[in-house]
């Protein structure tokens, strides 16, 4: 269940659309829910969002399964989403992905045993001039090198304690 504050945010989002078009709020509210409830969307979470927007649960499932930013399975606390499309590949993203795999001892799509890190290889994030890069939560980490990756991992570990 959302807090009072988040419920007000939901109301504010719904008010952006004409009367009866509250379904337009679905994607923003799913982002809000994913951020609030552990970084992924469980069936319970999706049903809750459906009830908030007065739409059918299936309408939420349809959308949640379409967009790649919505996680339908639990993920690690820190998700490394490394871009692997052409422009990043040209600047060595393969090496960065390999380096992270070795360093964290996981494969692409896997989560470390301590639940801290998930590694994903994703498609173009619109940072091609600052390649190689990855998304980490709300922000981009650009011009990646093995040293930079080390520092990011250290920082994440420090935040976990």
């Amino acid at each position: 269940m959302f807090s009072e504050e988040k419920l007000n945010k939901v109301k504010e989002i719904i008010a952006r659309y004409p009367q009866g078009r509250q379904k337009s709020a679905l994607i923003p509210v799913l982002h809000l829910a994913q951020g609030e409830f552990g970084g992924w969307l469980s069936t319970e979470t999706m049903d809750y969002v459906a009830s908030l927007l007065q739409i059918k649960p299936i309408e939420v499932y349809e959308v949640a399964t379409f967009y790649s930013m919505f996680n339908l399975q639990p993920v690690g606390k820190h998700v490394f989403e490394v871009c692997q499309t052409g422009p990043c590949m040209l600047r060595g993203s393969d090496n960065i992905i390999d380096y992270i795999k070795k360093k964290l001892d996981i494969g692409v799509g896997e989560t470390t045993k301590d639940g801290l890190f998930t590694l994903k290889a994703v498609e173009c994030l619109g940072a091609c001039g600052y390649a190689p890069m990855m998304q980490l939560g709300k922000h981009y980490k650009e011009h990646l090198t093995p040293e930079k990756v080390d520092a990011i991992i250290e920082e994440c570990r420090a935040n976990a304690n």
Binding site: P28, F66, S68
Partner: peptide, 26 residues
């Protein structure tokens, strides 16, 4: 108003974008 998408290149196509803005699949 600012509306965030959620990871779908196809939503750059204008009619998919409109669908997405209406809270549907792109």
């Amino acid at each position: 108003y600012v509306q965030r998408g959620a990871g779908a290149y196809i939503c750059g196509e204008e009619t998919a974008l409109i669908e997405s803005l209406e809270g549907k699949r792109g």
